[in-house]
C-alpha cells in the first residue's frame, strides 16, 4: 500500500524529552530497580526499550536486564493468514519469575500485540507484575489494555499509520502520521 506523510508530530528534541520523562516515571513507580526488567517487542519496541534503558542507566546508574520478544507465534490471526508472517528471534536470558516486567513497544493500537506478548511472557514464567510502556498511544483499542507509561497520546484515524522513526534504524528521530494515497 502506498502512503504519504500527513503530518510530522514530533522532532528529535520532543522525543528526547518524552523518553526522559517516561524513564523517570518508570523509576518513580518502581522504587526497587533491582527486580525490574525491560522487554522490547520486535522490532521497533526493542529500539525504544534500548533508549529507555540508556536513560535509566544515566539517571540511576543501574543497567536493567533487557529482553527481546517476538510475538508472531502468539498472534490471534495466524489461522487467517495464507502466508505466515516471518518469525524473528526471542532472546530473554533472565528469568521472568517474580520480576517486575516493563513491556515496551513503539505504538499501541488495537492492543492485540500486547495481549500476545503477555501470553508469551507467561509461558516463560510468572512475573510479579507487567507494566506497559509505549511511545505512542494512537487509540482504537479492541481489548481492555491501557499503557502505564506513554510518550504521547495521539488520536488518529483507523486508516492512518503512525511511524516512530529512530535514528539507529531510520537515520533520524521523528514521529510521522502516514495516510494511504488511495483508499
Amino acid at each position: 500500500m502506498e502512503e504519504k506523510t500527513k503530518a510530522k508530530i514530533m522532532d528529535s528534541r520532543k522525543m528526547e524529552r518524552a523518553f526522559a520523562r517516561m524513564s523517570m516515571e518508570i523509576l518513580e513507580r518502581n522504587r526497587d530497580a533491582g527486580s525490574l526488567a525491560l522487554i522490547g517487542i520486535q522490532t521497533k519496541g526493542v529500539f525504544v526499550a534500548r533508549r529507555i534503558r540508556a536513560q535509566i542507566q544515566a539517571l540511576e546508574k543501574v543497567e536493567l536486564p533487557l529482553g527481546i520478544l517476538d510475538i508472531t507465534l502468539f498472534r490471534d490471526d495466524l489461522h487467517l493468514q495464507e502466508h505466515h508472517p516471518k518469525v524473528e528471534k526471542t532472546e530473554i536470558d533472565f528469568s521472568v519469575e517474580n520480576r517486575h516486567i516493563v513491556l515496551i513497544d513503539d505504538v499501541v493500537f488495537t492492543g492485540r500485540t500486547i495481549r500476545a506478548a503477555m501470553d508469551s511472557i507467561f509461558e516463560l514464567g510468572r512475573p510479579a507484575s507487567i507494566q506497559l510502556a509505549v511511545f505512542i498511544d494512537r487509540g482504537h483499542r479492541e481489548l481492555p489494555i491501557c499503557p502505564d507509561f506513554k510518550g504521547k497520546y495521539l488520536p488518529t484515524a483507523r486508516r492512518e499509520r503512525v511511524n516512530v522513526m529512530l535514528k539507529e534504524v531510520d537515520g533520524s528521530d521523528q514521529v510521522l502520521i502516514m495516510e494511504p494515497t488511495r483508499f
Partner: peptide, 26 residues
C-alpha cells in the same frame, strides 16, 4: 528463509514450556 525461521525456533526448545500456539487447531 527456512533456516532463518528454524533459527528462531531453536529458542522455543530452550524454554521451560516448550510450546507456542502457532498451529493450534491444525
Amino acid at each position: 528463509l527456512i533456516l532463518d525461521t528454524a533459527d528462531s525456533f531453536v529458542e522455543v526448545s530452550t524454554r521451560n514450556i516448550k510450546k507456542v500456539p502457532a498451529l493450534k487447531g491444525r
